[in-house]
Amino acid sequence: MDKATEQRSRMGMVPTRNQILTLGDLEDFKNDILQEVKRIVKECASGVPGKKWLKSAEVKKLLGISHGFLQSLRDSGVLPFTKIGGSIYYDYDDITFMMSANKSA
């Protein structure tokens, strides 16, 4: 949900089933959807996630590796991570650095 929608929601301006929508409301909705679709397409086309910090499941999917292999990368210090509570986060820049540093000619 974008900031404008959140603000309308807090102000009680999010329509219910029985309310009439204006053309402006529909235009805003269309723009919100288009913006999100463009972000998703850009992310998929570039292969670069749209965020800096990735969770373990995202890293495993990105690199096509198992949970055990990701664990061994952490344990060996090859891939730095940050643990907050029970969640482990990886900096996307650290992942790309690790891949570049281990690239063979």
Rank of each mutant, 00 (worst) to 15 (best):
V41W: 00
K83P: 02
A4W: 09
D91S: 11
P49N: 10
Y92N: 03
M1W: 02
V41N: 08
I33H: 04
T22N: 05
G86L: 00
K42D: 13
I95R: 05
I95L: 09
M1G: 06
L63I: 02
P80G: 04
Q71E: 10
K52A: 13
S76W: 05
K83W: 04
V37I: 12
M11R: 14
D28G: 10
A45V: 11
Y92I: 05
E36A: 14
L63F: 05
I33F: 12
L63A: 03
V41L: 07
D75M: 03
K61A: 09
Q19H: 14
G68W: 09
C44D: 09
Q7H: 14
F69R: 09
C44T: 15
E36C: 07
K61F: 05
L63H: 04
A4H: 10
K42P: 04
L54I: 07
D75V: 06
C44A: 14
V59C: 02
F69V: 02
Q71G: 06
S104L: 11
L70P: 06
T82H: 09
D32A: 04
L73Q: 03
K38V: 11
S87L: 12
I95D: 01
D93C: 06
T82I: 14
K38R: 15
A4C: 09
E43W: 02
E27H: 12
L54K: 04
Q7V: 12
Q19K: 12
F81K: 08
L62V: 04
D91I: 01
Q71N: 11
Q71L: 12
N102L: 10
K61Q: 12
I40L: 13
F29C: 06
G85A: 06
I65F: 01
D2Y: 14
Q7R: 15
V48D: 10
K30C: 08
V59A: 02
I95V: 10
A57K: 14
K83T: 08
L21I: 06
M1K: 05
P80F: 02
A101M: 09
K83E: 08
K52P: 01
R10G: 08
D2N: 15
T82P: 03
D2M: 12
A45T: 13
M11Y: 00
R39K: 14
T5N: 00
M11I: 07
G86W: 06
D93L: 11
A105D: 12
G24V: 08
I40N: 05
M99G: 01
M99S: 05
K3I: 09
F97L: 11
V41R: 06
L34A: 10
D25P: 06
R10E: 07
L26M: 14
N31I: 00
D75R: 11
G64M: 04
G47Q: 07
T5G: 00
R39G: 07
